[in-house]
């Protein structure tokens, strides 16, 4: 699951670029930056099978648990015939029936996941190796931005914080696009310009 070599490479990169920083602080901000990266890019998903039973009523709930990390978004649910089923997720990992099963069955939920406590014994967040391999430069930018923006440290720097925050935001956007297209080249080359974005203006 976790790519220790890559996370150590990230640590080495940051140690060199941030003079005087403590390893524990790098790991603290690494968790924050990777969490921000995963929640905004929706890269890490998992399909979880769960049993459903005939007689379940609308509004009843069931719990699903990912292999690692923390569920923060329910993407879709289908039954064993691959027919979509409506469910909601009022709390992380707690699924609520909107459609009810017409027979005993196994449904599948696809959920989006981010890192969570506990970390590994060495203090690194648990993240799939492929994500770290592919996006470690964007993650480094996120960690650097957070470290440089800490007040009253030998390495505090507004300019570098802004520079790396912008690079990290760009990497997150690219990752989100690639995840949405399932890494398919030219899968959907055109996107709506930013001024068409409405989801941050109160739209549900």
């Amino acid at each position: 699951m976790i790519a220790k070599a890559d996370l150590k490479r990230m640590m080495d990169n940051i140690r060199v670029r941030v003079p005087g920083v403590l390893d524990s602080m790098i790991q603290l901000e690494m968790f924050n930056a990777i969490d921000a990266f995963l929640t905004s890019s929706i890269l890490w998903t998992e399909k979880i099978d769960f049993p459903v039973f005939y007689g379940t009523k609308v509004g009843e709930q069931t719990i699903v648990e990912p292999e690692a990390g923390r569920i923060f978004q329910l993407q879709w649910v289908h039954n064993s015939n691959l027919i979509p089923q409506r469910m909601t997720m009022p709390e992380e990992g707690l699924l609520e029936f909107v459609d009810i099963p017409s027979q005993d069955d196994t449904w599948t939920a696809q959920v989006a996941i981010t890192c969570d406590d506990p970390t590994t014994r060495e203090g690194y967040p648990v993240v799939p190796a492929w994500i770290v391999n592919k996006y470690y430069q964007g993650m480094i930018d996120g960690i650097l931005a957070r470290l440089y923006s800490q007040p009253a440290k030998p390495y505090t720097s507004d300019k570098l914080a802004i520079f790396h925050a912008q690079a990290a935001a760009s990497a997150r956007g690219r990752a989100k696009g690639e995840a949405a297209q399932q890494n398919l080249y030219r899968g959907q080359p055109w996107r709506y310009p930013q001024n068409f974005a409405t989801r941050f203006r109160g739209q549900r």
Binding site: V18, P19, A152, P154, Y155, T156
Partner: peptide, 8 residues
Amino acid sequence: QILQTVTA
């Protein structure tokens, strides 16, 4: 200076 001097 050791603890807070801005180097960047």
